[in-house]
Computed example of a mutant assay.
Amino acid sequence: MKYMLKKITTLIITLLLVSVVTFVAFSVIPGDPALAKLGTYATPERVEALREEMGLNKSLPERYVDWLSGAVRGDFGESYQYAGTPVSELINQRLQVTAILAVMAFIIILVISIPMGIVSARKEGTWIDVFINLFTQVTMAIPAFFLGMILTYFFGLTFKFFQPGKFVMPQENLGSCIRYLIFPAIAIAIPKIAMVVKFLRNSVLSEVKKDYVRTAYSKGNRTKKVLYIHVFQNALIPVITFIAMVAAEILAGSIVVEQVFSVTGMGRLLVTAISNRDYPIVQAVVLYITVIVIIINFIVDILYQFVDPRVRTE
């Protein structure tokens, strides 16, 4: 219980600190949001009136408290670029897309990488291990955006499995959306699969050399039982951390892959907002990414208690 309370307290403090840094960073950037919204030909009176309406004449602490209280309720203000559309509405639309893409990519990673990592460790030194190592070396070296371009050329332009640039939002047609996202998910997943396989293989091989494994064998346990009950559980500890980083990266929005496939997700929204100096969106997306990373790390800390009982006694 004390462990949980400590982690929850740390999570809340971290979120508050990040919210302060995020708000202050975008508040001190040169430029007037009111002028950016109205345009350079706006009269000083109109600019001043809008500054008053947007609360920009208040002190920095007052504006932070107003922003934070709105953020807690899910209100991040209005977008400059999208004609006063609420930022929360824009994020909710893109979040659905990014969440679907992330879940698909994550499932592909887990389903393929964990069996491959275990097989590679079990067959160490055989042609199977060599083949898997070769596969991981090649796929790790290919950038996700280049892999996306290859998939687009072959499966989009050549075999016509999907129409590049014709992404359909899930609200319009969920089935078409999922079919389109299969290939971006593969482009994201393949380099990550190679990394997870490497981590898991090395972790399993490291555990196999420890004393408790020899003890398990001396008690008459079979190889499969030792591997899956004793070794695999301990080998997962460092792998969980890496998988959590992968999950956070995908959920934060795979910016480059979304650009390659013209997927209207969080990554693309962030790039567009930065290029148009749409600071309310940028602030909200940065805070969203931070929250995702912190929450996933919190979940990993809780998982450690189940995977490694020693954590509970610390």
Score class of each variant (00 low, 15 high):
Thr14Gln: 00
Val24Asp: 11
Val24Leu: 07
Pro30Lys: 13
Asp32Thr: 06
Asp32Val: 01
Ala36Tyr: 10
Leu38Cys: 10
Glu45Met: 02
Leu50Val: 03
Leu50Trp: 02
Arg51Pro: 08
Arg51Asn: 06
Glu53Leu: 01
Leu56Thr: 12
Lys58Met: 12
Arg63Lys: 03
Tyr64His: 04
Glu78Leu: 15
Gly84Asn: 09
Ser88Pro: 07
Asn92Glu: 11
Leu95Tyr: 13
Val97His: 06
Leu101Tyr: 08
Ala102Glu: 00
Val103Asp: 05
Met104Trp: 05
Ile108Arg: 09
Ile109Gly: 00
Ile109Val: 15
Ile109Thr: 07
Ser113Met: 03
Ser113Pro: 02
Met116Thr: 01
Ala121Gln: 03
Gln137Lys: 04
Pro143Asp: 05
Ile150Leu: 14
Thr152His: 01
Phe155Leu: 05
Leu157Gln: 10
Pro164Gln: 11
Val168Asn: 10
Leu174His: 04
Leu174Asn: 02
Ser176Leu: 07
Leu181Gly: 06
Ala189Glu: 04
Pro191Phe: 08
Pro191Leu: 09
Ile193Thr: 04
Met195Asp: 00
Leu200Tyr: 02
Arg201Trp: 04
Leu205Cys: 10
Lys210Asn: 09
Gly220Thr: 13
Asn221Leu: 15
Lys224Tyr: 11
Val226Asn: 05
Leu227Arg: 07
His230Arg: 13
Asn234Gln: 11
Asn234Cys: 10
Leu251Cys: 04
Leu251Ser: 00
Ser254Arg: 05
Val263Ala: 13
Gly267Tyr: 05
Leu269Arg: 03
Asn297Gln: 12
Val311Ser: 08
